[in-house]
């Protein structure tokens, strides 16, 4: 990946497939890439990507697609679909964070979202095998990009 690139993995590493964002971060750091784990809190996210040329968000999503499906969005060109946001009315999700950044003029020049469709978010469970396969593909893709 080019200088000025950062990969941000969102999720909870103790909740089944929701751990995939942090696990991608672990793998990419091991390969010398700049990657950071984050809870998805909007102001904190905007601080991380301030001044960056290229930002990639990685998260587990539940959109109704088959488990293990990789979703890719160019956030400069399009919004995340509403059903990708896990926000409740009292918490803000990634989709809101991105839209706040868009309105506030805080978007990085290149900005992608890579989501993997999850199967389960059981406390303490490992990644589902089909999600693990998709995560391996994602890691290779991000390492070579």
């Amino acid at each position: 990946m080019s200088a000025g690139t950062i990969i941000i993995g969102i999720g909870n590493r103790f909740r089944g497939d929701d751990a995939l964002g942090p696990l991608v971060v672990d793998a990419l750091k091991g390969r010398g890439l700049e990657a950071v784990e984050h809870s998805g809190e909007p102001a904190g996210l905007m601080e991380i990507w301030a001044g960056r040329e290229n930002v990639v968000l990685v998260d587990c999503v539940f959109s109704g697609a088959a488990s293990g499906t990789i979703h890719e969005f160019d956030l400069i060109a399009e919004k995340l679909p509403a059903n990708f946001s896990r926000a409740t009315s009292h918490a803000l999700g990634i989709a809101e964070a991105v839209e706040f950044a868009r309105v506030l003029g805080k978007m990085p020049p290149a900005f992608r979202f890579l989501g993997v469709e999850g199967e389960q978010v059981q406390q303490g469970a490992p990644l589902s095998p089909v999600v693990g396969d998709a995560v391996a593909i994602l890691i290779e893709q991000l390492s070579g990009a």
Binding site: E41, P42, A43, G44, F100, V103, L104
Partner: peptide
């Protein structure tokens, strides 16, 4: 924008 940004910053401080 300034007010909403303050809101987001303050929420982060609480967190």
């Amino acid at each position: 924008p300034k007010e909403v940004e303050h809101g987001l910053q303050l929420k982060k401080v609480g967190n």
